[in-house]
Structures are given as C-alpha cells and as structure tokens.
Design a protein around this nucleic acid. Structure first.
Length: 914
RNA sequence: GGGUGAUUAGCUCAGCUGGUUUAGAGCACCUGCCUUACAAGCAGGGGGUCAUAGGUUCGAAUCCUAUAUUACCCA
C-alpha cells in the first residue's frame, strides 16, 4: 500500500478519537494504581472554544496522556460551569427577542427556559475539546448546577452558616445596574477613562458671601450629600469646620466636618460626603454618624429622594445638572482628568456602589489557610513568581469578605428563609437549612410558635455566586459530600491548569474549601497520608494575546477561530503551535496575522504550520521505512557496521533525551519538552539516523536493521504521543500489525537507562566533520554526489575515533567520501579545517584559491587568538586560581589547551599556504 | 497613587544554582539544490555591546541599586 506524500489529519483524527472512545481508554475507575487526577477548569456551559481553552486543555491533555503512558491511573474530569450572570444575561436577551420579559413569567418558568436553552446549546465546547484530542473521562462529565453539585453547595452554605462563617448584612457593594445584581469585587474591571472634575460652590448658611468649592466627578449625586469634609490641618478651611453650607439647587443644609481621610492636594481639598453612592464616603459617614440618602433606583435612575431630575438616568442627569448648576452660579469650572472607572465584567455597565442586604463569607480565616498552604509548599505554583500576586491578595489587610448573593435566578437559591410577617432588614430572623422543612423546624423552635407552616415562610430570592459552586469543584465532581468513596482515591488532584486571571476567583477559593472540607470528608488518617489540598500543583498559563498584546477575546474579534485552525493544520499541528510558545505564566503572543484591509484576524498561524509540517515529516519517515525492500540475508559489511553504530547511537540519544524530558515534565516546562522531542525526532532520527541506515539506491535493507528502526520509531511515537496524539497513533498502527489493545495511547513510556556518553561525543564529531565538508562543497561548488578524499591529522584522539567500528564508513556515507585516512604530514593542495582539535585535509579536484583560503584561516585564527587571550587572562589572575572551584579552573585549562592546539594547527595550515 | 514582572537576533521566545556561553532555538532573511521519504523538503550562511548607567565578584545575560520603556495586578 502506498501512502500519500502528505499527512492528512482530517482522515485520521476523528477515526482515532472514536476508536479511543470505543476502547474506553479515557475512563478511570479507582484501582490499585497510583491516581493522577486533573479536574478541568469548567468552561461556561454556553461558551465556545477559544485560544485560551486550546492552550489550557492542550497542556492538561499532555500531562494526562503522559501519566497514562507512565502507568498511572489517569483521570481527567470534564464539565461545565453554569456561569450565572453570563448565562442569565443570554437567556434574558433571548427571551426579550421573543417578546418575553423575565419578570412577567416568574422564576420557575424562567428557569425552565434557561434549562431548555442550556440543553440545546450548552456543552458545545465539550465536543470541541474532543476535536482537540482531549482525553477526558467523558463518563464523568459534570455540570455545576446538576442536582448533586447543587446539593454540595447547599450543604456547604448551611455548614458555614452554622459555623458562623457566613453572615447577612447591610453593606456597600458593587452593583451592576444593568444585570440588577451585586458583583463581587473581582467581577469589577477598572478601566482608565477620560472624566471631568466639576468644581462646585457650596454657600455658607451663616454668610451667603462665603462658600467652599468641592471637586466631584459625579455632580448628579449632590442631592445625596450629607456633609462636606476637609482635612483637619488644612489651613484654608480652618474657619469652615463646624459651620454648614447649602447643597446647591436643593438648598439642603449640611455640616462641614474634619476628617484626616481627605487628601489636601486633590482637587480643592474639600470633599463632598455622599454615603449612599461612594464606598469611602460611606465609611466616613458611618464614623461621623451621618445619615444615608440613596437617590438612585436599582437600574441607575434618580429616584424621588433626589427631588430634582427624578426618573433620569445617572448619565443623562449628569449632563442636565451641569446646565442647572451653571444657571444657579454654583459651577466654578470643569477640569478634564483621567481616572479609572469600574465596569461590570459581564455587562460592561459602569458599576454603582450601593448599600444593600447581602450574604457574605468571612474570609479572614480562609485567607490565612490558603496563604499558608502555598507558603508551606503543600500547593506548588508554577511559575513560582505567581506566589507574589497570590500573597498580596490574601494578606490580612487586603482580604475582604466575599459577597456571595446575586440577584439572579440562574443558580443555587440561597437556603435561607424568613418569616413573612417581618420587615426585610438586617435584624429580621433568618432560618438557614438545606430544605424548607429544616427551616420551618428551626422557625418553630426559635419563635416558639408551634402553628407555623411553610406558608408563613418565604425563601431568600437570591442565588449564590457561581464561584460558590466552582470552589467545591475538586470535591464535588467526585460527589465527595455524598460519599467519600471516590475522593478517598482521587483526592487530592495532581495539578490544576488555569490562567492566572482567575487566581483569586477560583484557585485561592478552591484551596480554601479544600482545607476546610476535605478533613471531615476523608478523615484524619487519609489527610495525614495524602494532604488536605485540592491539588498538589497549579500550572498558571499565560493569557493568549494578539500581536498588539491585547487579550484574545470574542468581543474584540482578535482571536482566530480555533476550529478553523484545526481544519487547516490538524489538531496535532494546532497543539504544537499553541504550546510551542507557551512557557508557564508568560503571556503568549499568538502569531495569527491580520488582514490589513479588513483588520480582521486570519485563521492562520506560522507556529501551527510548523506543527503541521512536523506531522508531515513523521509521515514521510514512515513512507521511507515502508518503501524499503527487505532482505533477510545478513552481511557483515560496511553498511552493517554503520547500522550497528547508528542503532547504538540513537539508543543512547533517546536515553539521554528521556532523562532531560523527565526533568522538563517534573518542572512543567512543557514547551521546552516539546522542542526537545521535536529535535530528537527531526534532527537525530530523521536527519542522521535514517540517513545513516538508508541503503544505497536500489539496494534492499537488512531485516534486522529495519526492525531496529521500527522499534526506535515506535518508541519515539510513544514519547511524542502526549503532545501530538493523533499522528502518533496513526503511525504506530502503520508501523506494524497490532494485536488487540496494542495502541499508542496506552503504550508504555520508556524508562531511561545508562547510555554511552562517549558514543554520543564520537558521533557529534562525525556531524561536525560532515558539516564542514558540506560547507566546503558549498563554497567550492562541488556537487553533493562527487566523492572526495579526507585526511585526518594523526593524534591519539583521531586514531581512537577512526578505530570505532562503523565511524569511518559512516563518515564516508554522510560526507560522500571515497577514502578517509590518517596522516602525519601536511597534505598540499587541500582545504584545511578543524575537526575537533585536529586538522582535516579535504582533497578537492578544483584549484584552490589561495587568497580565499588564507582569508578564511586568518579569520579563524583571529577568533582563537582572542579566545585564548581571554582564557589566559582569566587563568593568570591569581584570585581566580585561588577562589574558583577546582573543576572550573580545570575546565578553563582544558579550554586553553584545546584552543592552543587548534590555533597551532591553523597557523601551520596558513604557513603551508605560503 | 501602591505593587509585581518583563526588556536577549527583524519577529516569538529559551538561557533554571553566576563559571564549556565573546549567548541558543524556531520563524523570517540570504545562497545553492525539484538528490530516488518529505520543496510542508535538503545542504549551507549572515544576523545580538543580552534596555541604559553604576555596583558586588577572580568572573555577570544571570546578583544588587538607580533610570528608561513596557505589561499586568491592586485601589
């Protein structure tokens, strides 16, 4: 059967993926083997695959496949996140297009719509991961809002409430006026924007001639002002402290107070205090026992408390109040300035500080645990430098309580009930339990009213933050809160692979929940043996950015279409491309080009092309092997000697590389590992080994040699498999007939054994000499096929070297020589070059341009002269000889000796030329 | 405003514990090859004061300080 000259990924990829699934290779059950567990960072259920996912999941797949080959029980749990705000926003929009309003249809009907939508469109991303080759255990696919995982959320909520770690309180929170929900601080994105600073005059109530000027960027909130604050040491305003002023336009009287919080140098040094609409003002207001006047509606419009501009949107009001202030003579001036303004991560609306009743998790004790876990090394970060960011976040003075309630419907409803009779405020009684019946029992007990029924209770309307379910992910995917059987085996997971952007949202919180809950689920014995951490290591990937260093995102339209890339380059090619520039933690500049005319990103990539070309290279190596005619007759000739040499050498190189690879895997330097394998295959296997064993044209290959080559190729396919699973599986099967279950995906990762370092050095010299001969051919326009004669200067080294079986023959083959011999004499009319420390003389049949040769030699001589003098300098320094370690000094001495030998040879050659 | 990292070839990056590094890789570029596995290839080549200025050291791309540029995080 003859193969196409090019590898066709589209013909093999689906075939092998289906095959792996059919064989159930990705499924894991607890057994006696060591587990290697990875839980996927669950993508949004409504998401589609983008470059970040590609990178992230390629890395996870490499680690999982490597573990599987290494004989571990590899378990990669996939799943999706219900993503409350994002998904609810999408469903709301969809319903609106159909003329349906969320509020009209009610909670239950809305959730029906949402689930229907999720069932229809959700999980597309998981199918896309299959195209990438992700070897997830699909039987274990989980969803953060399925019953079992929701149960876990309720369990944890009740548990923490009972421990006093969850509380309900009136707090300043970040409010999204579009999604109509509070946001956690992490969901607020600050953007640098142009803003205007309004300087407003507030006139004294006791003397209309005096006024104080304040600077504000939010003039529409002056109706909510309750005071003006100045710094107690500010000389300009000493006489104002304790007096009062009128709020412009509405002429409400407010006091002037002194507080050291005020920055004397900012604006006018006087600050209006608006507790309802600014976090800091709220704190100052509380300190000075000032009232709170809230003039905004939940959707960001002015309410009747504003008394003017009622019903107008906050931004419209800002425009309109400017006019009013001007007319009233209260506007002194307007300055432009840059400031950063918080936006909702999901809706991009400008967030509004808002005072509301919310549920919070007390983070102080959690933060301490989470910080200690990484500090102590129980959880390792790759790259380590990520710890700095982690630490700064979790420090005591930085950590803030986690607001977990969201005014949404799509999510786990907060398991708290209130008495219908009580007013909704901070002081109302609350009954927290997993079910309404639990809550009723508590209500009866606490109130002493035995006649209470479920009808007397009403449940909190809010749901919990999405992250309140995903922080349990490493436990809940194994149903750990229900039955410890599986987590007893799989927990802690091995490594978490995620972007650093969700370090606080997710990574830190999983560490917190892991340490909080795993001890009670697993028991002290297991914890002592395996640890309480949810994962032993975190591999932070960088953000994938475009060539302008913008984060690749759907909204910017700067991300190439992941699936289109797979269509063009094959999944293996894309995996290669995406990984090869991705050192841990460093952001990745993905090289997709832009169409200059349309400014649209093209679905092209040089790096993926390189990956595709690599597949093709492998494919053609296979074709080469398949094309050889085989003979069983063994001849003990030169070819045989070369083949033996090549075989032993490649074996040594593979073992040498395996040692390096293990180190690279252990330290998660995967892009380096890929390059290492790439070079082993392309350079060592294809360029040298195959060329060495290749029979002369028309000649057959000895069966033994072909078998050795096949065995090497097979081994290399296992080594490459984690990175490029499809092409390796295809070649694995093309190489020979396979028995049932003998597949690359479940083959055995070779263990490294002792290798012959001297042999590697000897072949390195062979390569060096060959390159020099080829260069000389190039320079003298000598045909590749023309056989030449080469002499080596006789030395201990060259005698030994040429004595090695097969070396001479191999050199003749790679350099196309008819004769290689040793000489003690200078050979005239030859091109002289250095092979290692010794001189080589290449006899060529064209006249030698003496001047050119001299020029070349002089250049080389100059290089070594400089080199030698720098080494001599170092060695002649007494301090160096005294303080440097002996082996370094010896190395320098060796360097000098080698350099001198080389220089001497070159000088002699130059003299010879006359 | 506070903090963290980065700056090495035209581009994207390695270089880990200071010493076989007068610095490596891939892409791009140049020269020559349609050589009977592969032009998605082969052979060869050019290209870097390691951001700048000081310092520590026998020795610095590597450690320290400052500056510049840049990215990000936090408020």
């Amino acid at each position: 059967m003859s193969l196409s000259a090019r590898y066709q990924p589209q013909e093999t990829e689906t075939k092998w993926y289906d095959y792996w699934l059919k064989k159930n290779y990705f499924h894991s059950e607890p057994d006696e083997r060591e587990p290697f567990t990875v839980v996927i960072p669950p993508p949004n259920v409504t998401g589609v695959l983008h470059m970040g996912h590609m990178l992230n999941n390629t890395i996870q797949d490499i680690l999982i496949r490597k573990a599987r080959l290494s004989g571990k029980n590899a378990c990669w749990v996939p799943g999706t996140d219900h993503a409350s705000i994002a998904t609810e926003a999408k469903v709301v929009r969809l319903l609106r297009e159909q003329g349906i309003k969320k509020g009209d249809i009610g909670r239950d009907a809305f959730l029906e719509h949402a689930f229907a939508w999720k069932d229809k469109y959700g999980g597309i991303i998981l199918d896309q991961l299959k195209r990438l080759g992700a070897s997830c255990d699909w039987e274990r696919t989980r969803f953060t809002m399925e019953p079992s995982l929701s149960d876990a959320v309720l369990h944890v909520f009740v548990n923490l409430y009972e421990k006093g770690r969850i509380y309900r309180g009136l707090r300043m929170t970040q409010w999204d006026p579009e999604a109509l929900t509070v946001l956690s601080n992490e969901e607020v994105i600050y953007k640098e924007e142009n803003a205007r600073l309004f300087h407003l005059k507030y006139y004294r109530t006791d003397n209309p001639a005096l006024f104080i000027t304040i600077a504000t960027q939010r003039p529409e909130t002056i109706m909510a002002d309750v005071a003006i604050a100045v710094h107690p040491q500010d000389e300009r305003y000493q006489s104002f402290i304790g007096k009062s002023v009128f709020v412009p336009l509405i002429n409400r009287e407010i006091p002037i107070i002194a507080d050291a919080y005020v920055d004397i140098s900012f604006g006018t040094g006087a600050l209006k205090i608006t507790p309802a609409h600014d976090q800091n003002d709220y704190e100052i207001g509380k300190k000075h026992k000032l009232p709170v006047i809230d003039i905004l509606t939940p959707n960001g419009k002015l309410n009747e408390k504003a008394t003017i501009l009622v019903g107008q949107d906050r931004f419209e009001a800002r425009k309109n109040i400017k006019k009013l202030l001007e007319e009233a003579g209260a506007l002194e001036k307007i300055e432009d300035y840059r400031t950063s303004i918080g936006h909702s991560e999901r809706t991009d609306a400008v967030v509004e500080p808002r005072l509301s009743l919310q549920w919070f998790v007390d983070m102080k004790p959690f933060a301490k645990t989470a910080l200690e876990a990484v500090k102590s090394g129980e959880v390792k970060f790759y790259p380590e430098s990520m710890f700095n960011m982690y630490q700064s976040w979790l420090q005591e003075d930085n950590i803030r309580d986690w607001c977990i309630s969201r005014q949404l419907w799509w999510g786990q409803r907060i398991p708290a009930w209130f008495l219908k009779t009580e007013a909704e405020d901070e002081n109302q009684q609350v009954f927290v339990g997993k079910t309404a019946d639990d809550a009723l029992k508590q209500a009866i007990e606490k109130t002493g009213i035995a006649s209470l029924t479920l009808a007397d209770l009403k449940q909190d309307e809010d749901v919990v933050d999405t992250w309140f379910s995903s922080w349990l992910w490493p436990i809940s995917v194994f149903d750990g809160f229900k039955d410890p059987k599986e987590i007893a085996y799989y927990y802690p997971t091995q490594v978490l692979v995620t972007g650093w952007d969700i370090m606080f949202f997710w990574v830190a919180r999983m560490i917190m929940s892991g340490y909080e809950f795993s001890p009670e689920l697993l028991g002290a014995g297991k914890i002592k043996e395996k640890g309480a951490m949810p994962f032993k290591a975190v591999y932070y990937t960088g953000m994938v950015r475009d060539n302008k260093r913008r984060k690749m995102s759907k909204s910017l339209g700067n991300s190439p279409d992941a699936l289109a890339l797979i269509d063009t380059y094959g999944a293996d090619g894309v995996r290669f491309g995406v990984l090869s520039s991705a050192a841990a933690g460093n952001d990745i500049i993905f090289d997709a080009p832009f169409d200059l005319k349309t400014q649209e990103v093209l679905n092209e990539s040089k790096l993926c092309e390189q990956g595709r070309n690599f597949c093709n290279k492998l494919w053609n190596a296979l074709r080469l092997l398949q094309g050889w005619e085989v003979t069983k007759i063994e001849k003990n000739d030169g070819d045989h000697a070369i083949a033996e040499l090549a075989n032993q050498w490649l074996d040594a190189r593979i073992n040498q590389t395996l040692v390096l690879l293990q180190d690279q895997f252990n330290s998660y330097r995967l892009s380096e590992a890929l390059i290492t394998v790439y070079k082993l295959i392309w350079d060592d296997f294809c360029s040298w080994y195959l060329e060495l064993i290749k029979p002369a044209y028309g000649e057959p290959i000895q069966k033994k040699v072909l078998d050795q080559a096949t065995a090497h190729f097979e081994k290399l396919m296992t080594i490459l498999h984690p990175f490029m699973p499809f092409v390796t599986e295809e070649i694995w099967h093309q190489l020979k007939q396979r028995a049932e279950g003998e597949d690359c995906v479940v083959s055995v990762w070779p263990s490294a054994y002792e290798y012959d370092k001297l042999l590697i050095a000897d072949v390195d010299l062979l390569k060096l000499v060959t390159s020099s001969v080829r260069e000389i051919r190039n320079n003298h326009q000598i045909k590749m096929k023309e056989e030449l004669t080469l002499y080596f200067q006789k030395s201990m080294l060259t005698i030994q070297w040429l004595h090695r079986k097969g070396i001479k023959e191999a050199l003749c083959k790679t350099s196309v020589l008819n004769e290689v011999s040793l000489t003690e004499e200078e050979i005239p009319n030859t091109v002289t070059f250095l092979g290692g420390n010794d001189k080589c003389y290449l006899v060529i049949n064209t006249t030698i341009n003496v001047e050119e040769e001299k020029g070349r030699l002089v250049k080389e001589i100059e290089y070594y002269q400089k080199f030698i003098s720098s080494v001599e300098n170092k060695l002649s320094n007494e301090k160096f000889a005294n303080s440097a370690p002996a082996d370094i000094v010896n190395k320098e001495r060796q360097k000098l000796a080698d350099g001198q030998t080389k220089l001497k040879g070159l000088m002699e050659a130059l003299t010879k030329l006359g």
